[in-house]
């Protein structure tokens, strides 16, 4: 689902200078938002690929003499109940959280594109069966369906990835199915058929590239949602198990010390929020560009 922010409507003509100035201000503001999101995501990428560059310490190193220390110069984000540095854990935790979200989104996109293509190319009965199954999958609340899956497989990183991938798959499949049906009836595909192209070649070269147009944008926005679902599930203890510094798990551990040390819980939580906000801003901007609108 796309929720558009206030923007300049497509094909708007600016009659007065004040309107033009207002549009310019809006664009500048959006650019600032985009730059901030890009900067945060760059830092995040560094944290995932090379955490030691941002936090050289060991995320599991306990310091019994320095437990529950409030944020200060030596510990930016304070320390937790075992004296572990929260900043180091947040930075190293990015690897866990982002990897889970990226892998889950990859599962969703791959599965969604395959199923969507299959449904879009199939004849009525097969298409109807697939589409109804996807409808049924999206009838379950995402979180509960993911929990059902984890109840079967047991908690852990891999089950978490597959569960999130599975519950976010239907939307990709639906988009690809719709576009496939549109594309296969278009003039150039019919022409390619008359030229006697083989079916696999037709699908791979002509239908697929045109049916997956909106998928990258959907994937970026879906990535943010995957981060959210992953945090929720591992908060409930269904993801990576402690002492692994995964964001949701950190929130769950820190919860018991909320009344004396808010930073153990709230600061990793803000990392989650900032990630999702940045991904959403990026995704929406990209979407707007695709729609041919400048905002």
């Amino acid at each position: 689902m796309t929720v558009t922010l206030d923007g300049v409507p497509a094909g708007a003509t600016f009659t007065s200078t004040t309107e033009r100035a207002a549009a310019a201000t809006r664009r500048r503001r959006l650019r600032i938002g985009l730059i901030a999101a890009g900067a945060y995501l760059t830092v995040l990428l560094v944290a995932v690929l090379w955490p030691a560059a941002l936090a050289p310490g060991d995320p599991l190193a306990a310091d019994p003499l320095n437990v529950l220390a409030a944020p200060d110069g030596s510990h930016w984000f304070g320390t937790d109940n075992l004296g572990r540095d929260v900043w180091t854990r947040v930075v190293h935790g990015a690897g866990h959280s982002i990897t889970i979200a990226v892998a889950a989104t990859a599962v969703a996109v791959t599965g969604g594109v395959l199923l969507g293509l299959l449904a879009g190319l199939s004849h009525r009965i097969a298409d109807e069966t697939l589409s109804r199954t996807l409808d049924a999958l999206s009838a379950f609340p995402t979180l509960l369906l993911a929990m059902l899956f984890i109840a079967i497989t047991g908690p852990g990183t891999v089950s978490l990835i597959i569960a999130i991938g599975l519950v976010t798959l239907p939307r990709h499949a639906r988009v690809v199915r719709g576009l496939t049906q549109l594309v296969r009836r278009s003039g150039y595909v019919e022409q390619a058929v008359t030229f006697g192209l083989s079916r696999p070649r037709l699908v791979l070269r002509h239908i697929l590239p045109n049916a997956i147009g909106p998928i990258p944008v959907l994937a970026v926005i879906g990535l943010g949602e995957a981060v959210l679902i992953a945090a929720g599930l591992s908060f409930l203890g269904m993801g990576p198990q402690p002492p692994s510094p995964e964001w949701g798990a950190m929130l769950s551990e820190g919860r018991n010390y909320l009344h004396i040390a808010w930073w153990i819980t709230i600061l990793p939580g803000l990392a989650v929020t900032a990630t999702v906000v940045s991904l959403t801003v990026l995704g929406r901007h990209w979407q707007a560009r695709l729609d041919g609108r400048h905002r």
């Binding site: 949701g248 929130l251 909320l258 709230i266 939580g269 801003v281």
Partner: peptide, 22 residues
């Protein structure tokens, strides 16, 4: 609104707990 839909709901709850209750 962007902030609210991008924040895990339990974090909102934990912040409220931290400020208003504790």
């Amino acid at each position: 609104e962007l902030l609210l839909v991008s924040t895990p709901s339990f974090l909102i709850g934990l912040v409220l707990l931290s400020v208003l209750s504790f």
